[in-house]
């Protein structure tokens, strides 16, 4: 099995979000970047296939050279090789288009991604990629088994889950449940040493067509202070929720 895992390079979840250049650019000053948590679930599931069923794992990122440490981390976790498409990730469509080229030239028939990246929260790259390739696609994937050419997938639906089956080729967009939190791997020293020697190839983009562009960013309006209600006066809370906030 040849698996491609799409890795987005995102600010750590504790990052303070600020903007520069008249609120048109994300301020990366002092920000730690990590593997997008949803992509980490996908990578961890790929590792399970590698260990249990003998798969090779390629990780790919569309981005500039600053994303390479994130790809190296994925190699340290256990991916076999990495590809970076040397292009600023401007919008979801342009990223999906570049990934589609990588899938075609590497003939991957199983592509694992995360359901969204925690920076732009677009939630579109995996579905667009599958559509461009005319592959099957399952979003919000919380379980994946592959036997030969057949996949069984669970996906989260509103208030439950659905079990699906389909043939490969397949793209999935994963989330927690695909693997458990305890399955996530922290790279060890040996993994980190080995990752330095694993191939990371840089390829040039084929197209720069975009469909959307960011004009500016805003921060949410400052919120008013919390009204504290005494613990022995819950009637007051009910009164405020009913008469002031009008939510009950």
């Amino acid at each position: 099995m040849k698996i491609l895992v799409c890795i987005s390079h995102v600010p750590d979840t504790t990052s303070k979000i600020n903007f520069t250049d008249n609120d048109t650019k994300f301020d990366t000053n002092g920000v730690q970047f990590v593997i997008n948590p949803y992509d980490e679930f996908a990578l961890t599931r790929a590792m399970w296939f590698k260990e249990k069923q003998g798969a090779t794992i390629t990780v790919v990122n569309v981005g500039n050279a600053s994303t390479e440490p994130t790809l190296r981390k994925a190699l340290a976790i256990g991916a076999d090789n990495a590809i970076r498409v040397n292009m600023e990730a401007i919008d979801g469509f342009s990223v999906a288009q570049e990934l589609a080229e990588v899938v075609k030239s590497g003939e991957y028939n199983l592509v694992l991604a995360g359901k969204e990246s925690i920076d732009y929260n677009g939630g579109m790259v995996p579905g667009m990629l599958a559509s461009i390739l005319d592959y099957n696609f399952v979003n919000a994937c919380i379980g994946l088994e592959v036997e030969g050419d057949k996949a069984t997938i669970s996906r989260e639906i509103d208030g439950g889950k659905e079990i699906l089956s389909c043939n490969l080729p397949l793209v999935i967009a994963g989330q927690k449940g695909l693997v458990e939190e305890k399955d996530l791997k922290i790279p060890n020293m040996r993994g980190i040493m080995m990752a330095r020697k694993k191939p990371l190839s840089v390829i040039e983009p084929v197209s720069s067509e975009t469909t959307t562009s960011t004009k500016s960013f805003d921060k949410p309006a400052a919120k008013s202070a919390c009204k504290i209600v005494e613990a022995d006066n819950v009637e007051e809370l009910i009164n405020l929720l009913h008469n002031e906030a009008k939510v009950i």
Binding site: D91, G92, F93, A96, N121, G122, G123, M124, V125, P126, G127, M128, A130, S131, I132, F137, N139, A140, R155, E156, I157, D158, T211, T212
Partner: peptide, 22 residues
């Protein structure tokens, strides 16, 4: 909803449309 988030990116590619989520 779960289904809307699932299909919107595929509709976008099929219609050569730009898609803004959220």
């Amino acid at each position: 909803n779960a289904n809307g988030l699932y299909i919107a990116p595929m509709v976008a590619v099929n219609l050569k449309a730009g898609y803004a989520s959220n």
